[in-house]
């Protein structure tokens, strides 16, 4: 519930509610469609903060009951990983 269209929705990429609404006007009907037009969810937190907010905004334009239609874009890894984590001495074995 925001009261001004320049309120920040995606903090990582500084995308405002106004930009998201514009993306919807241009035809975006999914979180991914909004992402492609605005870069929302592409930042460091990968949408952890803003995904729910974007879905809320979308809910006024599309039926959000079926999550599979929304391309919400959650992907591996759900926690950051580094290349370093995958390089280890094979000889030492695992676990």
């Amino acid at each position: 519930m925001s009261h001004e269209k320049n309120v920040c929705i995606c903090r990582c990429e500084e995308v405002t509610e106004g930009e998201i609404l514009r993306a919807i006007e241009e035809g975006a009907r999914t979180v991914k469609g909004i992402k492609i037009r605005t870069q929302a969810t592409m930042g460091l937190c990968q949408g952890r903060t803003c995904r729910r907010l974007i879905v809320n905004i979308l809910s006024k334009h599309v039926d959000i009951n079926d999550i599979s239609k929304l391309e919400i874009g959650i992907r591996v890894p759900v926690r950051t990983i580094k290349i370093k984590n995958f390089i280890y001495d094979e000889g030492k074995g695992y676990e």
């Binding site: 460091l44 990968q46 992907r75 591996v76 890894p77 950051t80 580094k82 290349i83 370093k84 390089i87």
Partner: peptide, 11 residues
């Protein structure tokens, strides 16, 4: 040189 960068997504 890149082994410490954080990986945030795979696709």
């Amino acid at each position: 040189g890149i082994v410490n960068f954080n990986i945030i997504r795979t696709f």
